[in-house]
Structure formats: C-alpha cells, structure tokens
Design a protein around this nucleic acid. Structure first.
Lengths: 254, 254
DNA sequence: CGTCATGTTGAGTAAACTCAATGGGTGTGG
DNA sequence: CCACACCCATTGAGTTTACTCAACATGACG
C-alpha cells in the first residue's frame, strides 16, 4: 500500500512549503475581512461548550484561535465526534437556528460572533468569499465521507492510525513548530474513541499495541510518531492523500 | 423516545404539503437554468458506474433522473456507500479532477454534463444559484454527519431502521406516489450493508427480526412499513427530524 | 425452464464491548 | 514543596455483537 519516504513527506507538511498554487492555501476570506463583519467575539475555556446540541443558535461563529470539535449526542449519552475544527472554521450555521450538533473547545479558544444578516451581506458583496466558503463546506463533507468509510469498514487499528495521521497533518499545517517526534494534540483517549466509534478502553489497547510495535505513542495529549512509514502503512494511507487533508482546512481546493 | 402519530407524519411526507416557505423546496437552481449550461447529457444503466474511484473526472454531472449512490472502495474490495443521490444532486466535483469516490446507478439514470468552466460562469452570473449550491453541499455534509454518528455509535438494528426511514422519507418527497404500505426502493440488502457498515448476512438477520416483529419488511427492492411508530422508535428518531432529511435533497435550507 | 442474482439459515469465530479494579500524571491548595 | 484529589490511562476476565464461511432457497428474468 504505502511506499517510500513518509518521514520526508510528513516533515514537509507545512503550509509555507506546500506545492499548491498560492491561491489554494488561503483560509476562508481572510481574517481581516471576516473581522470587519463580526459583531463581537467570545472566549471559550478548554472543555466548555460553545453550544450544546438542541440549543438555540442565533448567530454564527468564526473560529479564530484554538481547537474545537463538533459532536452528536445520543439519547443514552453515547457521543460521536464528527469533526475537529481548527482556526478558520465556521461554526453554528443551522436551519431554524437550532444547533443540531454541539461544539466543545479542546483548548482555550476564541471565536468571532457574526450575525446571520452580516454573513448574508458578506456573501452577497464578496462572491469570492462565498465561493471559498462553499469549498470549505465541500471539503468538510469529504472529510466526513472519509471518516464514514473508516468507521464503517476499517478495523480499530486502522481507524486509530488514520485519525492520528489526519490530526498530525492538520495540526502541523497550522502550527508548523510541532515535530513528528513530539506534538501536542489536545485530546484524551476518550476523544479518539468518540471520533473513531470505539470505546476508550479499546482505544487504549490499540494504542498499547502500536506503542509496543514502535509505531506511534500517544499519552497525555502528547503524540510521538516513532515510525511514520509503518504508521502510514497501518493506516492504509498514501502520504500524498494525507497531504490533501491539510488542504481541507485552509485552502479553497482546486 | 418517540411518540404519537408517525403514521400521519410519514403519510404527509410530500413536497407539495411541506409546511416550509415555498422558497425552501426548490432544487438547485432549476432544471431549466442548469440545462442552459449543460454541454450534453448521458444515460447510465442500472448497476453501471458513472465513474470509478480514481478515474479522471474532467466534467461535472447534474442528476436529472434516476437514483445513484456515491461509494468508497478499500484496497481489499470492501465498499462503503457514502450517499444516495436523487435528482437535483450534483456529482463529480473533485479537486485535481480525479474522482475520489465512485458513483454508480441504482436505476437507469440520466445526467446533464457540465464543464467546469460552465459551472464557474453559472455561479458567477447567478449568485442565487451559488448560494443554493452551497446549501446543498452543506446539507450533504450534515447527512454524512448523521450517518457517521449512526455507524459509529448505534446498534445494527438502529442503523438499519434509520436508513430505511431516511430512504423512505427522501424517496417519498420526490416520488409521492409511493406509499407507506409499499414502496419501490432500488436497493439490495448488500447496499444496505454497505451503507450501514454491516455485512449483507447480518443485515439479513436484522431484517428478519424486524419482519417477525411486524415492524418493516424489505425484500427484493420492495419496502413495506408495517408499523411506522415502532420503526421510528427502533430508529430512535423523532419523525420531525425525519422530515428535515427530506429537505436535504431539494431545498435551500432556512 | 434454467440461470443468476439475491436472500436465508446455521455453526463456529473473532473483534470489540462491559464491568470493575488498579495505576500514573498533573495540577492545586495547604 | 508536599499531599491530596481528580482525571486519565491501563489491565484482566467474561460477554456480546457482528463476522466468516458455507450451504441452500427463492424470486426475477430471459
């Protein structure tokens, strides 16, 4: 499945080295443009909800700083993490202005608050931004499809390896100071379980195996990729595909 | 979980009775507008691929008639169905013009062929259509999130019940002549398995149980909902939510 | 009427889960 | 700076769910 020099590939995961056309590595609009439409900002402490599933949600949020995740809650409390949002992401857009999913902060986070009306005029006055926004949603959809495929058809080992690789690439794109050897990933094993459709106990066993095989370590929010080639292999991922994930956050696609 | 009169709710699943503002039940643009931008059309026989994963895909398709599905193929042949597309859906939009996912017809289908250039000018000249397109993608994303949650956290029984309910509602919106008592759903049990992350054998057992309990029958592409209340209950779905799925295909959201 | 796709069933297996107890790190407050 | 508390991770034993393999039945369709 996998070949060659993943170490090199992963080390080069940096926006400023990305070999794509410059136009593709922009976030939605730019922060300044978005900022001019905001009607306030809000800080969320790590572990707190920006909004819960079912709560009224009458404004839209633009994530400026920090890391958050989108989740669905079942009747009995089981949780499924749907998406990890990084700066540049748009949150809280729902029909009927009621949140379908919840959004919780993994680190302390800052969002701009934007009214529906402002977003409307932004999209009308700036067609370019509208298109970029569409691309962003389109790529979130594809990321969701990848996760669906992973959770529906892959083993626990593959799922965990894929998630770690995905998060490594996406975090590294944004915060290039992280290294393969040591990255701060603000998750617990329970988050990994909720994102991959596994229990925290089983995630723990999978991680132990991967650690004992010298492939990857994840412990107390610290990720160490010991053998990138093997990790990509276990994940069943061509490193080139991994690179395309990085684009999912910040670029406008092709 | 569920209460009340699902029979009534499900019977009223018809676009022309939808209590939403009229503006929300339009498909993307309208067919006539899209048609004016097409550069040809193509027919696909049931069971045939419009394109396979990995194939070059240099044009975009607008589904005019029939039913198709989007799928991902793993190295070893396992398949995950990602989305069932109904008329009004847009297919084949990929970065680098290489298909990430495959698209196969469930029934004989007709698509309009649209060049990237034409789509570009359509979106530029008709901002309204651009917004509708964005909404469509956004709702596909939410549907993918629902599936992810289902496959990641629900039992086989719940997953199958949810899928049948979803498909019933979406098909019924488009083809109101179908009834609860008898609907033609162009799927096999294997498709159900590939969409829910189960094996065809296990889907069969689940369907047998549901049949023996007098809840729902699915056999040779025919769906009979025997007890809508129980079905909604097994699926863990508030019928109101089911109605919102119907909007996912044809409406522009809120 | 035969063939093929699709559906059905059984028996045995494997993957992941549950429950429950224990251990380790981190951060806080005395 | 130490002690305590809490969150997080770890491990074991037993169970459940869904899977695999294989045989067989049935409906659809030419």
């Amino acid at each position: 499945m996998n070949m060659g020099n993943s170490v090199q590939m992963l080390k080069e995961v940096r926006a400023d080295r990305c070999t794509l056309p410059a136009s593709t590595i922009r976030p939605i609009g730019d922060r300044a443009t978005i900022a001019s439409y905001k009607c306030g900002s809000r800080e969320i402490k790590a572990g707190c909800d920006l909004f819960r599933p079912g709560a009224p949600c009458s404004v839209i949020y633009y994530l400026v700083d920090g890391c958050m995740f989108l989740y669905d809650l079942l009747e009995d409390g089981r949780r499924q993490i749907l998406h990890f949002a990084l700066p540049g992401g748009m949150l809280g857009l729902y029909p009927n202005r009621v949140a379908i999913y919840g959004t919780q902060a993994l680190t302390d986070a800052v969002v701009y608050v934007i009214s529906h009306a402002s977003l409307g005029s932004l999209l009308k006055s700036d067609a370019e931004t509208g298109l970029q926004f569409m691309w962003t949603v389109w790529k979130e959809r594809n990321l969701a499809y990848d996760h669906l495929s992973s959770v529906g058809r892959r083993s626990s080992r593959e799922r965990v390896a894929r998630l770690l690789l995905e998060l490594f690439v996406r975090f590294r794109m944004r915060w290039p100071h992280h290294s393969i050897e040591e990255m701060h990933l603000p998750l617990t094993q329970e988050h990994i379980g909720d994102a991959t459709g596994l229990t925290n106990v089983h995630v723990n066993r999978v991680l132990r195996d991967l650690r004992e095989e010298g492939i990857v370590e994840f412990h107390y929010r610290r990720l160490r990729i010991l053998n990138p080639d093997k990790l990509a292999d276990v994940a069943g991922i061509d490193p080139h595909v991994a690179l395309s994930w990085a684009k999912s956050d910040s670029s406008s696609g092709d």
